Simulated scan of single mutants.
Amino acid sequence: MKKILIIALLMVGVKGTAQTANSFFETANTFFKTYISNGKVAYDKLHKNPEDLNKVIALAQAVNVTKNNVNTYQAFWINAYNLSVIKGIIDNYPTNSPLANAGFFDKVKHNIGGKNITLNDIEHKLLRAQFNDARFHFVLVCGAIGCPPLISEAYLPSTLNTQMDAQTKKALNGNFLMVNIKKKRVEASQIMEWYKEDFTMNGTTEIDFINTYRTEKIPANFKIKYFEYNWQLNKQ
């Protein structure tokens, strides 16, 4: 009888955790649809009325995900990162750049997913260190114009891989790269310089990675340079 009771309590706990995660994903999806347009954030609107932001952050605080369900884990922490960036901007608003606020990425703590962590912790410890996937760089949005654009929907466990592929393709077929045919040169975002090891895993080159997602392929003999990152705020 005692064993049955323990199993029942565990099942209730699992069900409750799943419901909390589902509520978070639904609320986050509504939030992004409401406040994100063409990759830009409605910071003025959120600063005047932060209730929706505070609501989704409160839900994120109560979510508990594990790597046992990889898609749920990754989708949660990608959304949590993007939401925490927005919260960090609103907490310092008005501001022209995330870098205008000391410790924005490496010192300021966020109460998310039962943890008290920095943005760098989410990106480098919970995601990059756990999974060898360079696509994270196209879905984690740091609040700057130089970042790949923020999408107007939440990343969901059921569609995560498709969404990550879509954002990577959008960036590598868009202004994340500038190709100069005459000079046989590709100019790429500094993200590809800062995290070169992520784009050259398993003996591949940066151009190999680019061509995996790019429609118009780049010749293997092209040289790569990097253009300066634009840290101006991604504001509507």
Rank of each mutant, 00 (worst) to 15 (best):
E228K: 15
A8P: 04
L156Y: 02
I57W: 02
N38Y: 08
W231P: 10
N68T: 07
R128C: 01
Y93H: 09
K107P: 04
H137Q: 02
Q190G: 12
N82D: 05
W194T: 07
A58P: 01
V41E: 00
I191R: 06
F131L: 10
E193H: 12
K223H: 10
A21Y: 12
P50S: 06
L83V: 00
V179R: 12
N116T: 05
T205N: 09
Y213C: 03
G88D: 06
N161V: 08
V63W: 01
I191M: 09
N22F: 01
E26L: 11
F24K: 03
L10Y: 10
E51A: 14
L150M: 09
T159N: 13
K225E: 15
N234Q: 03
L177E: 06
D198S: 10
K67C: 03
R185D: 11
L140E: 12
I7R: 11
P149T: 09
N173R: 08
I207C: 12
N54R: 08
G114D: 05
Q190D: 14
N22E: 15
I151R: 08
D133I: 04
K2M: 12
T215L: 13
Q167A: 07
P94Y: 02
N68A: 05
N54T: 05
D44A: 15
G143M: 11
N180M: 05
A42S: 11
P149C: 08
T118V: 01
L46S: 05
V85C: 02
N180L: 06
N69T: 10
I57A: 09
N120Q: 10
L150T: 00
K182V: 08
W194A: 07
V65D: 04
T34C: 10
K3H: 13
K48S: 09
H124F: 05
M178S: 14
